[in-house]
Protein backbone atom coordinates (compact mmCIF):
# COMPACT_ATOMS: atom_id res chain seq x y z
CA UNK A 1 0.00 0.00 0.00
CA UNK A 2 1.25 3.50 -0.78
CA UNK A 3 -0.16 6.99 -0.34
CA UNK A 4 -1.24 7.27 -3.97
CA UNK A 5 -3.25 4.07 -3.86
CA UNK A 6 -4.73 4.97 -0.47
CA UNK A 7 -5.77 8.43 -1.69
CA UNK A 8 -7.11 6.81 -4.84
CA UNK A 9 -9.32 4.47 -2.83
CA UNK A 10 -10.45 7.37 -0.61
CA UNK A 11 -11.34 9.38 -3.70
CA UNK A 12 -13.30 6.42 -5.02
CA UNK A 13 -15.17 6.10 -1.72
CA UNK A 14 -15.81 9.87 -1.79
CA UNK A 15 -17.40 9.53 -5.22
CA UNK A 16 -19.79 6.90 -3.82
CA UNK A 17 -20.61 9.11 -0.81
CA UNK A 18 -21.32 12.15 -3.02
CA UNK A 19 -23.53 10.18 -5.40
CA UNK A 20 -25.44 8.38 -2.65
CA UNK A 21 -26.02 11.68 -0.82
CA UNK A 22 -27.18 13.32 -4.03
CA UNK A 23 -29.75 10.67 -4.95
CA UNK A 24 -30.98 10.01 -1.41
CA UNK A 25 -31.01 13.54 0.02
CA UNK A 26 -31.65 15.32 -3.25
CA UNK A 27 -34.26 12.70 -4.14
CA UNK A 28 -33.27 13.09 -7.75
CA UNK A 29 -31.07 11.25 -10.25
CA UNK A 30 -31.28 14.05 -12.81
CA UNK A 31 -27.97 14.35 -14.61
CA UNK A 32 -26.79 10.92 -13.43
CA UNK A 33 -26.38 8.18 -16.02
CA UNK A 34 -28.01 4.94 -14.89
CA UNK A 35 -26.14 3.25 -17.75
CA UNK A 36 -22.79 4.18 -16.21
CA UNK A 37 -23.93 2.99 -12.79
CA UNK A 38 -25.03 -0.33 -14.29
CA UNK A 39 -21.62 -0.72 -15.93
CA UNK A 40 -19.90 -0.06 -12.60
CA UNK A 41 -22.08 -2.69 -10.96
CA UNK A 42 -21.01 -5.19 -13.64
CA UNK A 43 -17.36 -4.15 -13.17
CA UNK A 44 -17.36 -4.72 -9.42
CA UNK A 45 -19.50 -7.85 -9.38
CA UNK A 46 -17.24 -9.48 -11.98
CA UNK A 47 -13.86 -8.27 -10.71
CA UNK A 48 -14.53 -9.09 -7.08
CA UNK A 49 -15.61 -12.69 -7.61
CA UNK A 50 -12.24 -13.47 -6.02
CA UNK A 51 -13.71 -12.14 -2.79
CA UNK A 52 -14.27 -15.77 -1.89
CA UNK A 53 -10.73 -17.01 -2.39
CA UNK A 54 -8.28 -14.13 -2.62
CA UNK A 55 -7.82 -12.57 0.81
CA UNK A 56 -4.90 -10.32 0.04
CA UNK A 57 -5.96 -8.02 2.88
CA UNK A 58 -8.93 -7.23 5.10
CA UNK A 59 -8.83 -3.72 3.67
CA UNK A 60 -9.30 -5.07 0.15
CA UNK A 61 -12.00 -7.56 1.10
CA UNK A 62 -13.92 -4.93 3.05
CA UNK A 63 -13.84 -2.37 0.23
CA UNK A 64 -14.80 -5.01 -2.35
CA UNK A 65 -17.99 -5.63 -0.39
CA UNK A 66 -18.55 -1.87 0.02
CA UNK A 67 -18.13 -1.21 -3.72
CA UNK A 68 -20.43 -4.05 -4.75
CA UNK A 69 -23.04 -2.97 -2.19
CA UNK A 70 -22.89 0.74 -3.08
CA UNK A 71 -22.96 0.29 -6.85
CA UNK A 72 -25.87 -2.15 -6.54
CA UNK A 73 -27.75 0.19 -4.18
CA UNK A 74 -27.29 3.11 -6.59
CA UNK A 75 -28.64 1.11 -9.53
CA UNK A 76 -31.55 -0.13 -7.42
CA UNK A 77 -32.48 3.39 -6.22
CA UNK A 78 -32.33 4.98 -9.68
CA UNK A 79 -34.13 2.10 -11.35
CA UNK A 80 -36.81 1.10 -8.87
CA UNK A 81 -37.17 3.57 -6.00
CA UNK A 82 -39.57 6.47 -6.12
CA UNK A 83 -39.19 9.42 -6.61
CA UNK A 84 -35.69 8.89 -8.03
CA UNK A 85 -36.82 6.49 -10.75
CA UNK A 86 -39.10 9.18 -12.18
CA UNK A 87 -36.17 11.58 -12.47
CA UNK A 88 -34.23 9.24 -14.76
CA UNK A 89 -34.69 10.13 -18.43
CA UNK A 90 -34.20 7.06 -20.68
CA UNK A 91 -34.35 9.24 -23.80
CA UNK A 92 -31.35 11.27 -22.65
CA UNK A 93 -29.43 8.49 -20.94
CA UNK A 94 -29.46 6.16 -23.94
CA UNK A 95 -25.82 5.30 -24.60
CA UNK A 96 -25.70 1.83 -26.24
CA UNK A 97 -23.71 0.08 -23.51
CA UNK A 98 -23.74 -3.18 -25.45
CA UNK A 99 -21.14 -1.55 -27.71
CA UNK A 100 -18.96 -1.21 -24.62
CA UNK A 101 -19.66 -4.55 -22.98
CA UNK A 102 -19.19 -6.61 -26.17
CA UNK A 103 -15.71 -5.44 -27.15
CA UNK A 104 -14.54 -5.52 -23.53
CA UNK A 105 -15.70 -9.12 -23.21
CA UNK A 106 -13.82 -10.07 -26.40
CA UNK A 107 -10.73 -8.20 -25.16
CA UNK A 108 -10.98 -10.00 -21.81
CA UNK A 109 -11.08 -13.33 -23.61
CA UNK A 110 -8.08 -12.54 -25.79
CA UNK A 111 -5.85 -10.42 -23.60
CA UNK A 112 -5.54 -11.45 -19.98
CA UNK A 113 -2.99 -12.56 -17.42
CA UNK A 114 -3.86 -16.22 -17.33
CA UNK A 115 -6.12 -18.47 -19.37
CA UNK A 116 -8.47 -19.21 -16.49
CA UNK A 117 -12.13 -18.17 -16.57
CA UNK A 118 -11.66 -15.78 -13.65
CA UNK A 119 -8.66 -14.06 -15.23
CA UNK A 120 -10.66 -13.51 -18.42
CA UNK A 121 -13.51 -12.04 -16.36
CA UNK A 122 -11.05 -9.98 -14.34
CA UNK A 123 -9.48 -8.51 -17.52
CA UNK A 124 -13.00 -7.85 -18.89
CA UNK A 125 -13.82 -5.86 -15.74
CA UNK A 126 -10.63 -3.82 -16.05
CA UNK A 127 -11.37 -2.91 -19.67
CA UNK A 128 -15.04 -2.20 -18.92
CA UNK A 129 -14.19 0.11 -16.04
CA UNK A 130 -12.00 2.15 -18.39
CA UNK A 131 -14.98 3.03 -20.61
CA UNK A 132 -17.80 2.86 -18.04
CA UNK A 133 -17.84 6.65 -17.59
CA UNK A 134 -18.71 7.28 -21.26
CA UNK A 135 -22.52 7.23 -20.87
CA UNK A 136 -22.18 9.70 -17.99
CA UNK A 137 -19.91 12.03 -19.98
CA UNK A 138 -22.28 11.84 -22.98
CA UNK A 139 -25.21 12.74 -20.72
CA UNK A 140 -23.33 15.73 -19.32
CA UNK A 141 -22.40 16.76 -22.86
CA UNK A 142 -26.05 16.70 -23.89
CA UNK A 143 -27.06 18.78 -20.89
CA UNK A 144 -24.25 21.29 -21.42
CA UNK A 145 -24.27 22.42 -17.82
CA UNK A 146 -23.26 20.16 -14.92
CA UNK A 147 -25.00 20.34 -11.55
CA UNK A 148 -22.56 21.15 -8.76
CA UNK A 149 -22.66 17.85 -6.84
CA UNK A 150 -22.52 15.86 -10.08
CA UNK A 151 -19.38 17.74 -11.08
CA UNK A 152 -17.72 16.82 -7.77
CA UNK A 153 -18.83 13.23 -8.24
CA UNK A 154 -17.22 12.96 -11.70
CA UNK A 155 -14.11 14.78 -10.49
CA UNK A 156 -13.64 12.38 -7.55
CA UNK A 157 -14.20 9.42 -9.87
CA UNK A 158 -11.61 10.70 -12.34
CA UNK A 159 -9.13 11.49 -9.58
CA UNK A 160 -9.36 7.94 -8.20
CA UNK A 161 -7.89 6.30 -11.30
CA UNK A 162 -5.49 9.20 -11.83
CA UNK A 163 -4.09 8.53 -8.35
CA UNK A 164 -3.90 4.85 -9.24
CA UNK A 165 -1.69 5.78 -12.21
CA UNK A 166 0.70 7.46 -9.75
CA UNK A 167 0.48 4.36 -7.54
CA UNK A 168 1.57 2.17 -10.49
CA UNK A 169 4.49 4.47 -11.28
CA UNK A 170 5.53 4.37 -7.62
CA UNK A 171 5.26 0.56 -7.49
CA UNK A 172 7.14 0.21 -10.77
CA UNK A 173 10.11 2.08 -9.35
CA UNK A 174 10.01 0.63 -5.86
CA UNK A 175 9.12 -3.01 -6.42
CA UNK A 176 11.14 -5.39 -8.54
CA UNK A 177 9.31 -7.42 -11.18
CA UNK A 178 6.11 -5.40 -10.75
CA UNK A 179 4.36 -5.63 -14.12
CA UNK A 180 0.65 -4.90 -14.69
CA UNK A 181 0.34 -3.90 -18.33
CA UNK A 182 -3.40 -4.55 -18.46
CA UNK A 183 -4.30 -2.11 -15.65
CA UNK A 184 -1.64 0.36 -16.78
CA UNK A 185 -3.12 0.54 -20.25
CA UNK A 186 -6.76 0.57 -19.12
CA UNK A 187 -6.08 3.05 -16.31
CA UNK A 188 -4.40 5.44 -18.74
CA UNK A 189 -7.35 5.26 -21.14
CA UNK A 190 -9.77 5.69 -18.24
CA UNK A 191 -8.02 8.77 -16.88
CA UNK A 192 -7.59 10.16 -20.39
CA UNK A 193 -11.35 10.23 -20.88
CA UNK A 194 -11.63 12.69 -17.98
CA UNK A 195 -9.06 15.20 -19.28
CA UNK A 196 -11.65 17.34 -21.04
CA UNK A 197 -13.98 17.25 -18.05
CA UNK A 198 -11.15 18.13 -15.65
CA UNK A 199 -10.29 21.15 -17.79
CA UNK A 200 -13.84 22.52 -17.62
CA UNK A 201 -14.18 21.53 -13.96
CA UNK A 202 -11.02 23.46 -13.09
CA UNK A 203 -12.10 26.48 -15.14
CA UNK A 204 -15.45 26.61 -13.35
CA UNK A 205 -14.04 26.12 -9.85
CA UNK A 206 -11.04 28.42 -10.30
CA UNK A 207 -10.97 31.46 -8.01
CA UNK A 208 -13.35 29.83 -5.56
CA UNK A 209 -16.46 30.93 -7.43
CA UNK A 210 -18.67 27.90 -7.83
CA UNK A 211 -19.76 28.78 -11.34
CA UNK A 212 -21.45 25.75 -12.92
CA UNK A 213 -19.26 23.48 -15.02
CA UNK A 214 -20.08 24.11 -18.67
CA UNK A 215 -19.24 21.49 -21.28
CA UNK A 216 -19.24 22.80 -24.89
Amino acid sequence: MNIFRFLGDMSHILSFVILLLKITQGKSAAGISLRTQELYMIVFCSRYLDLFWNFSSLYNSFLKVVFIACSSAIVYIIRFKSPQKDTWNPELDNFPIQYLIGPCAVAGLLINQDWTPFEMIWAFSIYLEAVAILPQLFLLQKQGEVENLTSHYVAALGAYRGLYLMNWVYRYFTEDDYLQRIVWFAGTVQTGLYIDFFYHYYQSKRGGLSRPVKLP
Partner: peptide, 10 residues
Protein backbone atom coordinates in the same frame (compact mmCIF):
# COMPACT_ATOMS: atom_id res chain seq x y z
CA UNK B 1 1.71 -22.52 -16.94
CA UNK B 2 -0.42 -21.43 -14.04
CA UNK B 3 1.54 -18.59 -12.54
CA UNK B 4 -0.44 -17.57 -9.50
CA UNK B 5 -1.89 -14.22 -10.51
CA UNK B 6 -2.63 -12.57 -7.24
CA UNK B 7 -4.53 -9.34 -7.58
CA UNK B 8 -3.59 -7.26 -4.59
CA UNK B 9 -5.33 -4.06 -5.76
CA UNK B 10 -9.01 -3.16 -5.92
Amino acid sequence: RHHDVNHDEL
